[in-house]
């Protein structure tokens, strides 16, 4: 049967430019990119969406999203998002940050944007490493995990402990919705999309600050095969960073 007479049930989302991206093979970023594209299509918000590209592996997001974008300085995406959304509340603002960007250099910005419950959506990619610069220790690197700058493994006595962002933000009154997901398996991907859809919907409803933390495989910098890396997310990483909903004011009575 020719494809003309068949129904297309999956193709590249219209909200993504039809061009290859630079992410490494098996990288979780690419999967989340598809999810964002699918949801911007499904929610019909492409013509008022603004994507924020941070510094790090997702710095080129503006090359991949097919909607308005702004590139932010390292760690400052929540401040840029605040400025955009306060300047024009009709915009649909998607802030996207990695773990170094959000939980190290930009810790102040994310905490205070969450605390003010700024009405934008944050996607937080936690892959426990600085990917773009070649695999240095991130604030989320696990204890004992080796990286370029913790060649003997992360030592809590000298390097501190992994920062749990959802738990940290959950101590604030401001956030409306906080959930941690992963994209290791097809089932996880379904849950991740559901979470991000919820965050996006809350923004459209004007509910305030949402953050979805995505545990994301980085086979290249973890020095693993792709299949080992998705297994590691589930079996090791999720021990330190438990999956689940931390805050959902939409579900509270």
């Amino acid at each position: 049967m020719s494809t003309e007479t068949m129904k297309k049930v999956y193709s590249i989302p219209e909200s993504l430019r039809n061009r290859p991206h630079h992410y490494c093979p098996g990288c979780g970023h690419g999967i989340v990119l598809s999810i964002v594209g699918e949801l911007v299509d499904e929610l019909g918000v492409r013509d008022r969406a603004v994507g924020i590209a941070p510094v790090g592996c997702s710095v080129f997001l503006y090359e991949y999203y097919d909607f308005d974008c702004v590139q932010a300085a390292h760690g400052r995406a929540p401040a840029v998002a605040t400025g955009l959304k306060r300047a024009n509340p009709d915009l649909f603002v998607i802030s996207y940050q990695g773990d170094g960007d959000l939980a190290a250099i930009g810790t102040a910005e994310i905490i205070h944007a969450a605390n003010r419950s700024e009405n934008f959506s944050t996607i937080f990619i936690n892959n426990a490493i600085y990917g773009m610069t070649g695999g240095q220790m991130a604030p989320t690197t696990l204890l004992g995990q080796k990286s370029q700058t913790t060649p003997y493994g992360r030592n809590p006595n000298t390097d501190g402990f992994p920062v749990r962002v959802c738990e940290l933000l959950n101590s604030l009154e401001g956030p409306y919705y906080l959930e941690r997901v992963c994209v290791a398996t097809p089932q996880d991907r379904v849950k991740a999309k559901k979470a991000i859809k919820k965050a996006f919907t809350y923004q459209l409803e004007g509910k305030g600050f949402s953050l979805v933390e995505v545990l994301s495989q980085c086979p290249t910098n973890w020095g693993m095969s792709v299949l080992d890396s998705v297994k590691w997310v589930k079996e090791v990483m999720a021990q330190t960073f438990p999956l689940g909903v931390f805050r959902d004011k939409g579900q509270q009575k």
Binding site: V70, V80, G83, L84, R86, N88
Partner: peptide, 12 residues
């Protein structure tokens, strides 16, 4: 943060 909020609002 303030200057980056300026960056965001100016972008708009």
């Amino acid at each position: 943060s303030a200057i980056n909020m300026v960056y965001g609002a100016a972008s708009a």
